[in-house]
Design a protein around this nucleic acid. Structure first.
Lengths: 189, 189
DNA sequence: TGAGCATACTCAACAATCTGACTAGTCACA
DNA sequence: TGTGACTAGTCAGATTGTTGAGTATGCTCA
């Protein structure tokens, strides 16, 4: 049930609509969780029903009306309880890793293509995260911001996302290099 | 449907029983995918039914009999097709990240405890992976093994797992440091 | 003026994953 | 002699997550 808490955590810093939340959880800013819009709307409905968030209707002229949600005191208490409970371990689950595991039995060229694609995606995400971090810390130095800033939670998870994507990127490039070297060695051993 | 292919990839290098597979996918050696025993037994049954793997009964004296599985030619073809198909993006989905996202609203001490626990787990997994890598490359230097060794797939995914766990570890320790510094600053600003 | 994109959501069906319980024999240790 | 851990699995049920399709309006750009 951690999607529940991920939504609560996302709503802590700003009042959001389901639609805005959905963008944050899908497009790439989802540096700490990922979910599809359908899941989020369903979860918001449950959270409101259980009194952990409160919605208010915002009437708009040129666009469809929307509902903005904020975390209630009960929601905060729920987050506290979640934080205190045992943390589930996190596991890798990545199609690309499965393909690399089978590297010795599948076509190198295909694999190199997939790795290059992923490397590019990882680079783009890393760039995005770097920009986000810059925006969050504003004019302050990072150390200073982290020591004295308010709302460092999103910054910290973004740091993790950045490291993750850089790791991804580096691994892809290194793996490509190794596969190419082996191809070359096979031709001219 | 990537569990299917993860199982095929795992069976490429050695004939395994469901039980052995389950250990590989759960305990921690699961550096490229994670799954519970129940899922694996079910998937093995489907794979055998579809002719992608073949099982053979091994009668044992002192233990229950077991069935060992190998990938068939049809299985190899399936893996080829999988490798050539588009790779799904991989997303972070981690309880601990959710807790850190809410860092500004929950008790620091609790969070530091959780981070310390995770740091220790990550360190242990990293150690495990380092040992695995040493075992796989044997007497050879890493570069040499990667250039000329057979079966580098598992080595490459293990490298990714290692980097992931080290990233985890570093992030936990850094985050703990930041949270402690903030606590200190709050007491004596 | 019409094609495509953005806002703001909803519904249904399906696939994947997880929780928890259960069988049944072996082995080591106290 | 019993307690717990290891081997080798199976079954049922609930929860989560994914796929795909729809509704309705307004804005921009060619």
């Amino acid at each position: 049930m951690a999607l529940r808490h991920a939504v609560l955590a996302a709503l802590l810093d700003e009042e959001l609509s389901g639609y805005q939340l959905a963008k944050a959880f899908s497009v790439g800013v989802a540096n700490f969780w990922h979910a599809l819009p359908q899941q989020l709307y369903a979860e918001l409905a449950r959270l409101e029903r259980d009194g952990l968030i409160a919605g208010r209707e915002v009437v708009q002229d040129t666009r469809p009306n929307k509902r903005l949600f904020t975390v209630t005191d009960a929601g905060l208490a729920e987050l506290d309880a979640f934080a205190a409970a045992a943390t589930k371990p996190s596991f890798l689950r990545d199609d690309l890793a499965v393909k690399v595991q089978a590297a010795d039995h599948i076509d190198s060229a295909v694999l190199i293509g997939q790795l290059a694609e992923r490397a590019e995606i990882a680079r783009a995400k890393a760039d995005l995260f770097e920009n986000l971090l810059r925006t969050m810390r504003g004019a302050a130095e990072e150390d200073d911001f982290l020591r004295h800033g308010t709302r460092i939670g999103p910054y910290l998870t973004c740091l993790r996302g950045l490291a993750f994507e850089r790791g991804n990127h580096d691994w892809c490039l290194r793996t490509i290099g190794i596969l190419k070297a082996r191809e070359a060695a096979r031709v001219r051993p």
